[in-house]
């Protein structure tokens, strides 16, 4: 009786997990399969999942339909610059909020929290006008500078830093370490999971960002991959789904790889910070 009940329990559990997994994985699967089909195959009814013969040339067609090398370089420069800038600003800020007591600290922290509640759509016009005023609208900077401070990252890292026993920091001070060294040699190595998570989230959201570069750029030279892929629809015609999906596969590939390599760290970070 008991074991039967167990069997039903685990069976239900696996079925439900399977359904959820399928729901999440199906769009990706469909995208990849479509990228490997010929044009007529994408249109057949009833639709078929697998292509008769994988069409690898779709990728070549997609990449040759525009300045994709420039797009990719732009995307890499923008995303990497954002992540580096964010780390440089976020680590000292989180350290100060977690381990220092100073006047106005609660107010400043409230301001940080407020910052990550305001969506970009609210601020893009004044930000655009300001950057245009500075004369940098034809460079990559408008895609980088507004994201230099990562409010969510400061919040998450602060929670993480708060769990580091103060005695460890005091020990380092007694060992004659400067505050900068304490951050770099003690706090950062102890927070690798949190930093990996924040870095990954940041990478995904800026690699995939469409809205911000769309409104901040006006020339091919500074556009990122997302815009380039979206423009495939114009160059290849609205219904050339196999080519468009090939472009999309190229776009999401780095993200999938990043997830694969850092999933353990991410789980760790969320368990520690109690956000599970």
């Amino acid at each position: 009786m008991h074991s039967k009940w167990r069997l039903i329990q685990s069976g239900t559990s696996y079925t439900l997990k399977g359904v959820v997994l399928l729901i999440f994985i199906f769009p990706f699967l469909w995208m990849i399969m479509t990228a490997l089909k010929t044009f007529p195959e994408t249109m057949v009814f009833p639709p078929r999942l697998l292509p008769a013969m994988p069409q690898w040339s779709n990728f070549v067609t997609a990449m040759q339909s525009g300045p994709f090398v420039t797009y990719t370089i732009n995307s890499v420069i923008v995303t990497v610059s954002i992540i580096i800038l964010q780390m440089v600003i976020m680590i000292p800020a989180a350290y100060a909020f977690a381990k220092y007591k100073f006047k106005g600290q609660p107010l400043l922290f409230a301001l940080v929290l407020l910052a990550f509640m305001i969506p970009g759509q609210v601020t893009f016009i004044p930000v655009y006008l300001m950057l245009a005023d500075w004369g940098i609208i034809h460079t990559l900077l408008p895609q980088i500078l507004p994201f230099a401070a990562n409010a969510f990252g400061i919040f998450l890292l602060r929670q993480y830093f708060m769990q580091v026993p103060t005695e460890i920091i005091e020990s380092a001070r007694l060992d004659n370490a400067s505050e900068f060294k304490i951050m770099l040699k003690i706090m950062v190595p102890m927070s690798v999971p949190a930093l990996a998570t924040i870095g990954l989230f940041s990478f995904v959201s800026h690699w995939n960002d469409y809205f911000w570069p769309l409104v901040m750029t006006d020339s091919m030279n500074v556009r990122p991959l997302t815009i380039g892929i979206a423009m495939l629809r114009e160059t290849e015609g609205i219904s050339n789904w196999n080519i468009i999906m090939a472009g999309n596969v190229v776009l999401v590939l780095p993200i999938l790889l990043a997830y694969l390599f850092s999933s353990k760290q991410i789980v760790k970070a969320f368990v520690y910070s109690g956000i599970k």
């Binding site: 026993p165 005695e167 460890i168 005091e170 020990s171 380092a172 007694l174 060992d175 004659n176 370490a177 400067s178 060294k181 040699k185 003690i186 190595p189 102890m190």
Partner: peptide
């Protein structure tokens, strides 16, 4: 002065050697 804490406050990401060496390096 040197202080030994109740919870030892050892740097968890450093090896024993690095822990002992840290003050000297600084």
């Amino acid at each position: 002065v040197a202080l030994v804490f109740q919870n030892y406050a050892i740097y968890p990401t450093m090896s024993v050697r690095e822990n002992i060496e840290f003050g000297l390096k600084n």
